[in-house]
Design a protein around this nucleic acid. Structure first.
Ligand SMILES: NC(=O)c1ccc[n+]([C@@H]2O[C@H](COP(=O)([O-])OP(=O)(O)OC[C@H]3O[C@@H](n4cnc5c(N)ncnc54)[C@H](O)[C@@H]3O)[C@@H](O)[C@H]2O)c1
Ligand SMILES: NC(=O)c1ccc[n+]([C@@H]2O[C@H](COP(=O)([O-])OP(=O)(O)OC[C@H]3O[C@@H](n4cnc5c(N)ncnc54)[C@H](O)[C@@H]3O)[C@@H](O)[C@H]2O)c1
Lengths: 253, 253
DNA sequence: ATGCCTTTGTGAACGCGTGCACAAAGATGG
DNA sequence: CCATCTTTGTGCACGCGTTCACAAAGGCAT
C-alpha cells in the first residue's frame, strides 16, 4: 500500500463513479467477514469472488480510492475496511428517522443490522394517535405533528419513509423542509425533491415484476425448446392466451 | 419503421434492454393511476413526468415494445396498460413463497400491494417449529422440511428469502433444486446460483451506506463553502476524527 | 543482489444507456 | 383536400461502466 512516494492521494472524492460507490458496501461486507476471521490480507481475486463481482472491476474500483494494494500480495484487510468505511462516511454516526410505523416500519425498526454500521434509529414517527407513545423496538413512537422538532433535536439528515403511498410526498416535503437531505423511500411513489436532496427507492413490487419478466422469457424458451424436443416442461404456461403466444399487436381502432 | 404493416412486431422480447424492463413497472404504475381516473390518452411528456423520467427515454422504451402511440395525440392508456402487463408477464398468476417468517417476512406477507399485480403468496415457510401452523396474514406457516413438496405442489417459480444471512445460501440451494428459478433476496448475502436462475437483491444496509456517502460529500461541500462565506452550517461534521490525517476533501493543491 | 513469481493498477477497446434534435405521421380545422 | 400544429419514433453522438490484457511493482528465495 501507500508507498508513501505516492504523490497525490490519487483520484479524490469527487471522482468516484456512482457504480463504484454502490459496490463499496458489498466489498466492505466481505472484508468485515474476513476481518472477523482474522484474515490479514486478501487478493483481488478472492475478494471479488466473495463479493460476487469481476476482479478487474474490483481493482479498478479500489484504484479510485487510492493505491492501497501490494503487488504480489494483495490488500491489507483491516486497512481496506478502514479506508472504505471512511470513504462511505461510516466513521461517523448517522441518526435516522423512520416515518410510518406499520408492518414495514416496525420491521425496519427491529432490524439489528441497522445499527451495526453507524446508523442509529433516532426516532420513530407515525400519524396514528394510537401509536404515539407505543414502544417499538424499545423506542417510543412520536407523533408526526412534532416531525420538525424531532429532526432538529436529533440533527437528522437521513429519513426513511414507510407510510402508505398517498402520504409519502407530503411526508417527504416536511422532512426536506426540516433539513433532511437523504431519503430512503419504501412507498410506491415517485417523490419529487429539490436539487441537492438524494432519494433512493426500494420497491418490492418492481423487483417482482422484473423477475416475472425474465421468468416469462425463460418459460417461453423452455416451451419452444420442449416443442422441438418433445419434452414436457413442469410449469405449464397458462396466461398467455393464444396458442402460440405471439403478439397480436393489433392497434385498437 | 412501424408502418403498421410490419410483419413482425418489430424488436421482440429478446431485444428489450434491461434498463427498459426495469422502468416498465414504473410506467405501468403511472398508467394504472391514469386508468383509474379514466384518462383515455396520455402524451409521452405527461407520462414521463408522472413516472419521473425523461420523455425521450420513455418514447425509446416504448419503441422496443412496438409502435403503440399515435402522433399528434399520444398513447392510449388502456391499451398501453395491457401491452406492458403482457410484456412483463403480469397477465398470468405468479405464486410466490416467502421463506423466513420473521419481522420482515411477516411484513411482506401482510403487504397488500403484493397480490395486486398478479403475485400471490402461495406459502410461508420457516424453520422454527414454533412458527409452524401459526397464521400470518391469514396463511398457515409451514415447516422448511416440506419446502420441496410445497414448491412442487404450488408450481412456484419465484421465491423470496427473508431468513438470516447465514441460512440464505442453503435455503436458496433448496429452492433452486426444487425448481424455483427467480429469487428475491433480502438477506445480506451474495447468493451463488446456477446459470438460468435470476437473483435480485434488496439490501437496506447498502442503500443507507450509499446515502451516507453522498450525505458526507454534501456536508463537506457545505463546510468548505461556509468557511469562505463565514456561514455556520447546522449539522456539524464530527466523526472524521483527528484534525490531522484526513483528506479535507477540499482537493488539495 | 538477482531472478522468479504473483498480483496490482491501468490503458484501451467496447457496449450499453441517455438525451438531443428533427423528420415524418397523423389529427384537426378550414 | 390542404395547411397547420402536435407529438411520436429514432438516428446520432456522447459519456459511463465493464472487461481484457499486460507492464510494472514488489515480495521472496536463493
Ligand atoms: N409491508 C411491506 O412488505 C411492503 C413492501 C413494499 C412496500 N411497502 C410499502 O411500504 C409502505 C408501508 O407499508 P406497510 O405494510 O408498513 O403499511 P402499514 O399500513 O402497515 O403502515 C403504514 C403506517 O404509516 C402511518 N402513516 C400513514 N400516514 C402517515 C403520515 N402522513 N405520516 C406518518 N405516518 C403515517 C400509518 O399510521 C401506519 O402506521 C407502503 O407504502 C407500502 O406500499 C410495504
Ligand atoms: N427486518 C428488516 O427490516 C430487514 C431489513 C433489511 C434486511 N433484513 C434481512 O432480512 C432477513 C430477515 O430479517 P428479520 O428482521 O425478519 O429477521 P428475523 O430473525 O425476525 O426472521 C428470520 C426468520 O427466519 C427464520 N429462519 C431461520 N433460518 C431459517 C431457515 N434455514 N429456513 C427457514 N427459515 C429460517 C427464523 O425462524 C425467523 O423466523 C435478515 O437476513 C436481515 O438481515 C431485514
Amino acid at each position: 500500500m501507500a508507498t508513501g512516494r505516492n504523490h497525490r492521494p490519487a483520484t479524490r472524492s469527487r471522482g468516484i463513479p456512482e457504480a463504484t460507490v454502490a459496490r463499496l458496501p458489498l466489498y466492505l461486507r466481505a472484508l468485515t467477514a474476513l476481518s472477523e476471521r482474522s484474515v490479514p490480507t486478501v487478493s483481488s481475486e478472492e475478494l471479488a469472488s466473495a463479493a460476487g463481482v469481476n476482479s478487474a472491476k474490483l481493482r479498478k474500483d479500489f484504484s479510485y480510492l487510492g493505491s492501497y494494494g501490494t503487488r504480489g500480495v494483495g490488500y491489507d484487510v483491516e486497512y481496506l475496511v478502514y479506508q472504505i468505511s471512511r470513504e462511505l462516511g461510516l466513521t461517523q454516526d448517522w441518526p435516522v428517522v423512520i416515518v410510518g410505523i406499520g408492518n414495514l416500519g416496525a420491521a425496519l425498526a427491529n432490524y439489528g443490522g441497522f445499527a451495526s454500521r453507524g446508523f442509529r434509529v433516532a426516532a420513530l414517527i407515525d400519524a396514528d394517535p394510537s401509536m404515539t407513545g407505543r414502544q417499538v423496538a424499545g423506542i417510543a413512537v412520536q407523533h408526526v405533528d412534532d416531525l420538525e422538532s424531532i429532526i432538529a433535536a436529533n440533527d437528522v439528515s437521513i429519513g426513511v419513509i414507510t407510510t402508505p403511498g398517498g402520504a409519502a410526498q407530503q411526508v417527504c416535503d416536511r422532512l426536506v423542509a426540516a433539513g433532511v437531505s437523504s431519503i430512503l423511500n419504501f412507498a410506491p411513489t415517485v417523490l419529487s425533491v429539490p436539487e441537492g436532496v438524494d432519494v433512493r427507492k426500494v420497491d418490492l413490487s418492481i423487483e417482482l415484476q422484473i423477475l416475472a419478466f425474465h421468468e416469462q422469457r425463460k418459460a417461453a424458451e423452455d416451451l419452444s425448446r420442449s416443442v422441438s424436443d418433445g419434452v414436457r416442461v413442469s410449469r405449464a404456461r397458462r396466461g398467455d392466451q393464444g396458442p402460440e403466444g405471439e403478439i397480436p399487436a393489433v392497434m385498437p381502432a
